[in-house]
Design a protein around this nucleic acid. Structure first.
Lengths: 222, 222
DNA sequence: AATTGCATGGAACAATGTTCCATAATTAGC
DNA sequence: GCTAATTATGGAACATTGTTCCATGCAATT
């Protein structure tokens, strides 16, 4: 029989717990991250986890910081300042695409440290690209809002398409639910239904970024 | 003694339940909306509610649809097509400011009917303002992403500032947590810390909209 | 060697969304 | 007008969750 409360050889640690949480989130989704599942994966009890971590919120914030931090460190350097902004935002986008729960968490808690890093990354690159100081805050905020919305969107998409579900069919059903039997009330949705079903998310994301950056150029010129 | 399961004179109804839910959400916040609180407010049991509504998700979706629908109906008409877009987006923004839980719910479930209405409203006004058909979908998507990010942001702000908390102090503490003791790592955040603390959310929101609309004009011209 | 603090893990607790069910009031069928 | 079926009701019961408590033993310090 096993003695109670033995000291483990592979000691628990905050980082180990975070890694296990990320593993669960990635493989089984956001709903699967429970303290019981986490305890099972770490072969311990729920109480032991709480000695290293104060609550689930801290765990999620740390997991997001881990993923976003890595994404930001891997952003390629670029001589072109505008290209650097695009690279940064695409890096975050790709990280969310690979770990959709990150999108949910960023949208739920936008003031967590990871958002500070993103904001700093955007703002410093805006400054480097010649945006006047008076416009940097507004531009960086707009880009952060935009990426936050995209994050929420991607996370919801991943939740709705759990296992290689047919994306086109799902988006088609979304349009059908919206429009219902009253096509007349949704002329625009109806006219872009095809694009809605078949568009490339990454290209669309980048298109929005370019729209904002183009607006910045325009405002600077005038 | 009370007989069991009498029929009420003021019959329960889906709309009545939704109204009660909105009342709780508005006055006591998102965390306060439980089926027990709802049952208490309606002077019934949890089971009775489930006869009218399938689950909490449907309730929240209906509550959001109610608030957003009213906001969209109250958007002022405008001869100026660009002004009409601004008016629509500001209407949604103000509705979220008045009912911050709407922001949380839109971010969690971006494919709910309310988002369809917003998307349609934006798109049809873009079309009316002369945006070529080939760019309407991208532009509308960008604006939807932007407003979704702003919605998540405003909801989080309301959650963090429960009762006339000092907004400036809170935002200052956010910056302090981000930067920590390493100012050198956050030159941009440090440089805009003042604006972050004191900015006007509504003006900032509108600024982002104008940035995107300006980008649209620029892309159309070139 | 004794004491103090660190860590562990399982049991217990409170809260939540949801389901079940006994029971009435209402409606439909004859 | 009676009976059967349907519509509503509301409270109890259930499963699951995050979290707290606590008995236990290991490690370091005195």
């Amino acid at each position: 029989m096993t003695k109670k409360s033995e000291r483990r050889v592979d000691a628990l640690s905050k980082q180990g717990i975070i890694d296990a949480a990320i593993g669960i989130l990635d493989s089984d989704g956001e709903a699967a991250l429970t303290f019981r599942a986490l305890a099972a994966r770490l072969m311990t009890g729920a109480g032991a986890i709480y000695w290293h971590i104060s609550d689930k919120d801290e765990l999620l914030v740390a997991a997001v910081a881990h993923v976003v931090g890595r994404a930001l460190r891997n952003v390629a350097e670029s001589n072109d300042a505008r290209g650097a902004i695009r690279a940064l935002l695409l890096g975050v986008f790709d990280a969310i695409e690979a770990h959709p729960w990150v999108g949910t968490q960023l949208a739920r808690e936008p003031w967590q440290p990871a958002m500070g890093h993103v904001f700093e990354g955007i703002g410093s690159r805006l400054a480097a690209s010649g945006v006047p100081a008076s416009r940097q805050f507004e531009a960086a905020s707009a880009l952060v809002n935009y990426i936050l919305g995209a994050a929420a969107h991607r996370a919801a998409a991943a939740r709705a398409l759990p296992r290689g579900t047919d994306r086109t069919a799902f988006l088609g059903s979304v349009v059908a639910r919206w429009v219902g039997d009253d096509i007349g009330a949704y002329p625009f949705v109806h006219s872009v239904a095809g694009q809605l079903r078949d568009h490339d998310d990454r290209a669309q994301f980048l298109g929005g970024i370019d729209l904002i950056l183009a607006g910045l150029d325009w405002q600077i010129v005038t």
